[in-house]
């Protein structure tokens, strides 16, 4: 850990101006950043603390959706009545992540930018293209039980660890950004990059750009949702595989479905392929299995993580069953 200067931002415009300074990192809950600073993985020269920004509200939008401030803490979002009622998948995903103490600190904006738990990214003694572009990937031939099977490249196989983002993928969240050039919105599906040859570039954020809000579009009435997370122990562990399902049935058929997978992708993994398989079909075992096959078709398992392919399929099938059952 090296010395750094520290500044508190109290309003968005000045925060955006300060955030553009080279070497400066924005700190919100700090649950990832402080960790990585202790490991010398992140070595910012300055921290801009945005905890004072007035971005901590959850409001209904005129169209019936939800506007979530970037500084809303994970616990507040998970326990919000509207979220529990209309976006249950999001509440479930949040509550399956980390621990209550961490959720009390972690923020909505911060979680969208959560960094990978890859052992080799977190240890500066190893090669890592994400941490040090061009140095290689120690994980590909290393211990890679927790690593991704979807969206990987020969340069990086690090898993995106978030639970919240998986639910937001299935809810087709829209991310609101503010930079020195002004405001823009990015659908979450376009927000993340797969690693390709540039694993150090994880998302579309420009230098100094700040996440201000996330909006969730309204869901058609009768929509149901569910998040299922599989891991070795029952709490305080990242997903080995997880599935978020948002589904609407009409006349015994699947009218609309959104599917995202966690723990298996280099980014929060939306599976349009699985959605296509289910479109207008009966919600039955046969179609669920076909959807799961479609979702994992492109999987590239490695030495220690081959089981994730099958685990993800089973997790998705169960999530589909639960989300579409008549309970």
């Amino acid at each position: 850990m090296q010395a750094f200067h520290y500044e508190k931002a109290s309003e968005v415009t000045s925060a955006v101006n300060s955030a553009g300074t080279p070497g400066v990192k924005i700190i919100a809950g700090g649950t990832t950043l402080v960790d990585l600073m202790k490991l010398n993985v992140e070595r910012p020269t300055g921290l801009l603390d945005i905890n004072g920004l007035p971005l901590d509200q959850i409001e209904k939008t005129p169209d019936g959706g939800l506007k979530i401030g970037a500084m809303v803490h994970n616990s507040d979002l998970a326990h919000n009545a509207l979220v529990k009622q209309q976006y249950a998948v999001l509440s479930q995903a949040l509550l399956s992540g980390a621990s209550p103490q961490l959720r009390n600190m972690a923020t909505t904006g911060g979680n969208l930018l959560q960094r990978t738990r890859c052992y080799y990214f977190r240890d500066t003694n190893y090669a890592c293209n994400k941490r040090k572009p061009g140095s290689g990937c120690a994980a590909i031939d290393g211990f890679n039980r927790m690593h991704a099977v979807l969206g990987t490249s020969e340069h990086c196989i690090a898993t995106h660890p978030s639970d919240m983002c998986i639910a937001m993928m299935a809810l087709e969240a829209v991310i609101h950004l503010r930079g020195q050039q002004g405001e823009r919105t990015v659908p979450i599906n376009d927000f993340y990059f797969v690693p390709g040859t540039t694993p150090q570039r994880e998302n579309v954020l420009a230098p100094g750009e700040l996440i201000t809000y996330v909006t969730l579009p309204p869901l058609p009435s009768g929509t149901r949702s569910y998040y299922l997370k599989r891991r070795d122990r029952a709490s305080y562990e990242f997903a080995l595989a997880s599935a978020a399902v948002v589904a609407l049935l009409q006349g015994g058929r699947i009218e609309r479905v959104r599917i995202a997978l966690g723990g298996v992708g280099t980014k929060p993994w939306r599976s349009v392929e699985a959605e296509h398989v289910l479109q207008k079909q009966q919600p039955d075992e046969k179609h669920f299995h076909a959807a799961a096959e479609a979702a994992l078709r492109g999987a590239r398992p490695l030495h220690d993580n081959a089981f994730k392919v099958e685990l993800a399929k089973r997790t998705l099938v169960r999530a589909l069953k639960t989300a579409t059952s008549n309970v």
Partner: peptide, 11 residues
């Protein structure tokens, strides 16, 4: 303690 797993209360 995140990666070396021991049982938590929920287990």
């Amino acid at each position: 303690f995140a990666d070396y797993m021991v049982a938590v209360n929920a287990d």
